[in-house]
Design a protein around this nucleic acid. Structure first.
Lengths: 171, 171
DNA sequence: ATTTTTTATTAAACACCGTTTAAATAAAGC
DNA sequence: GCTTTATTTAAACGGTGTTTAATAAAAAAT
């Protein structure tokens, strides 16, 4: 989590643990497997975060949506390495592990958003697609700043603008 | 462009050319250099595309913005490998080559969008930031489908929804 | 307590990778 | 024809993810 997926080697990890490289392969089928074992926890963190936002938000609607969107962005930028591992890195091995977790995470996002969306969206038939493109929009924002040294607070205002743009587009 | 940056090796390229690997390093400082030499052309393609859209669009405004946004998405999905190389791959070496081209490309996007944006955006003070988050939103959409087998036509309707969401958010 | 069986670890090797180097070859200029 | 420049090459360096067969440790069974 310090060095990143590509810049850390199985040999390096083993050395730091005081084990031989081959030993890692007794416990993990491959490098991607080792890292995917860590992502499960990170996905849960995101799930819990969104759940908490929903439960602490007084009532569904525009305000809650804003909170959800901003929380998502905040999570990504305050856990850059996790976010990278969960959504961005597309190493051949990793994706087969994370793909289903990604889908589950998106469904969780959908679940958090749906109720509020239905209160402000006029065209209910497009709900699912709308949530999906919202998801992609947020991803676009996070994906960029994940690869930058800027913190969430550095771009908080911009994140707000981004979220407002999306929210206005929903009405 | 067939195999992708990571999955092709300098040795493999050399072999296919009938040269020795070392010969490539006479002409290119490193692998990233070789690939960045190809991206220049691709960036120009995108620049020209946007320029063409602007010049053939009768007058600035919402309709032209829609065309610009859809053209950007279309370019990404009809030139997936190029788009990857231009914007997505963050190999340590490549980024130092493409970063300035990326910035120039974004400026070109800004130039294409600005005039139309000013006709429908009420808060002119936020123009620059607005264009930036629009850019990120489009990137989010393209970035996902670039890593999927789906074509632009497969997701054309979704792209339209995405663009409409952004456009409504601007008014 | 001793043997057997399962679990865990290791050193060594395999097949790659990007890149560098020094020597050999080809081309160009005089 | 000779010298200089441009280009190519084989070989090596240090790295990567991963596999294998031998070994050591722990657990279970006798």
């Amino acid at each position: 989590m310090e060095q990143g997926y590509r810049d850390v080697s199985m040999r390096g990890i083993a050395k730091q643990l005081g084990y031989s490289p081959g030993s890692l392969y007794y416990h993990f089928r491959e490098k991607a497997d080792l890292f995917s074992a860590m992502t499960a926890e990170e996905f849960h963190k995101l799930d819990n975060l969104l759940e908490e936002v929903v439960s602490t938000s007084p009532n569904p609607g525009r305000e809650r949506l804003e909170l959800i969107f901003l929380s998502f962005i905040r999570f990504g930028l305050e856990n850059k390495r996790s976010f990278e591992l969960m959504f961005l890195i597309q190493e051949p091995g990793l994706e087969s592990y994370t793909s289903q977790a990604k889908m589950a995470s998106y469904e969780n996002f959908t679940h958090a958003v749906m109720e509020s969306l239905q209160m402000i969206n006029v065209d209910r038939a497009k709900d699912v697609h709308l949530i999906w493109v919202l998801f992609l929009s947020l991803h676009g924002f996070v994906s960029f700043y994940v690869h930058s040294p800027q913190t969430y607070e550095d771009v908080a205002k911009l994140a707000d603008l981004h979220v407002q743009l999306l929210l206005r587009g929903l009405t």
